[in-house]
């Protein structure tokens, strides 16, 4: 049995009197693609915001376990940048690229938390800084190549076509060397061709052993990609299982399509 990378237990999030997440349990094992689905407003993005430190959850635990050790790292209460440093990188549902930076620079930002040159190194450009800077550029460029963005390397991020901007978000997140990659609706707004390309791309990333947790509305994509699926509604987990199981699950069908009214 594979080791769990992410373990979330009893995650609860209240906004005033509204319970956006209600005692949610979820786990992702190494190398797995897990999908989190649910109707609009089910709390999927809130879940992402909670585990990445943008919100502090009201209750519950979030643990990250690096594959080469058995030590659990608690992510609860950490700042977003610390969460990323520990190995959880995310993309955003509404694209949040650094618009006035080049594509390459966007990815280079992702390398920030894995490098350390600071004021002194920047001003005096020491040998160590130069070496680090070179490795940042090389690694970032390699990631761009892998995601088919190398041709845009020196374009401004906001000049890219929509699909490429989505891919750049993934590239930027990959540059932080995450243990687990979180994708928040990567296919939102894409046309069918772009979605097929995305499907291939995510599979390609997964082949390197990258664990992925994704939120997605495109059911075809979810069914094709996922090893396991979690279904949420009104902040609660209503089902979990393999794609085949979820497809047949009456509770899920009810959540999505509504209940038949007996005459």
């Amino acid at each position: 049995m594979k080791q769990s990378i992410l373990q979330v237990t009893g995650l609860t999030m209240d906004f005033g009197g509204i319970r956006a997440l209600n005692s949610l349990d979820l786990d992702v094992k190494s190398g797995e693609i897990v999908a989190l689905i649910g109707p609009n407003g089910a709390g999927k993005t809130t879940f992402f915001n909670c585990i990445t430190g943008i919100y502090t959850p009201t209750a519950g635990d979030i643990f990250l376990t690096p594959p080469d050790s058995s030590k659990k790292i608690s992510l609860k209460g950490l700042k977003p940048n610390q969460v990323t440093e520990k190995g959880l990188a995310r993309t955003f549902q509404n694209i949040r690229l650094f618009a006035k930076m080049t594509v390459l620079e966007n990815v280079m930002i992702g390398r920030h938390c894995r490098t350390k040159a600071f004021v002194f190194g920047a001003i005096f450009r020491t040998a160590a800084t130069r070496k680090e800077e070179k490795s940042i550029i090389e690694t970032s460029y390699a990631i761009l190549e892998k995601l088919g963005l190398a041709e845009f390397a020196n374009e401004f991020a906001d000049n890219l076509p929509y699909g490429a901007q989505r891919r750049l978000e993934i590239a930027r997140a990959l540059a932080t060397e995450p243990l687990l990659l979180l994708l928040d609706e990567p296919a939102a707004g894409m046309n069918p061709q772009e979605t097929i390309a995305l499907d291939k791309l995510i599979k390609k990333i997964s082949l390197d052993g990258q664990a992925i947790l994704l939120i997605e509305h495109d059911m075809q994509l979810v069914m094709s990609l996922s090893d396991r699926i979690f279904v949420m509604d009104y902040g609660k987990k209503i089902a979990q299982g393999t794609p085949a199981e979820i497809r047949e699950n009456p509770v899920v069908i009810k959540a999505y399509l509504g209940e038949e009214v007996d005459a």
């Binding site: 977003p80 990323t84 995310r90 690229l97 938390c113």
Partner: peptide, 24 residues
């Protein structure tokens, strides 16, 4: 430098910047 890029990223989008591991 790395620091200069972090500043510009901060200017462009604070939340994304933090999500990329930059200490705001």
């Amino acid at each position: 430098s790395r620091l200069g890029r972090a500043w510009i990223a901060l200017r462009e989008d604070e939340i994304a910047c933090q999500a990329m591991g930059i200490d705001k």
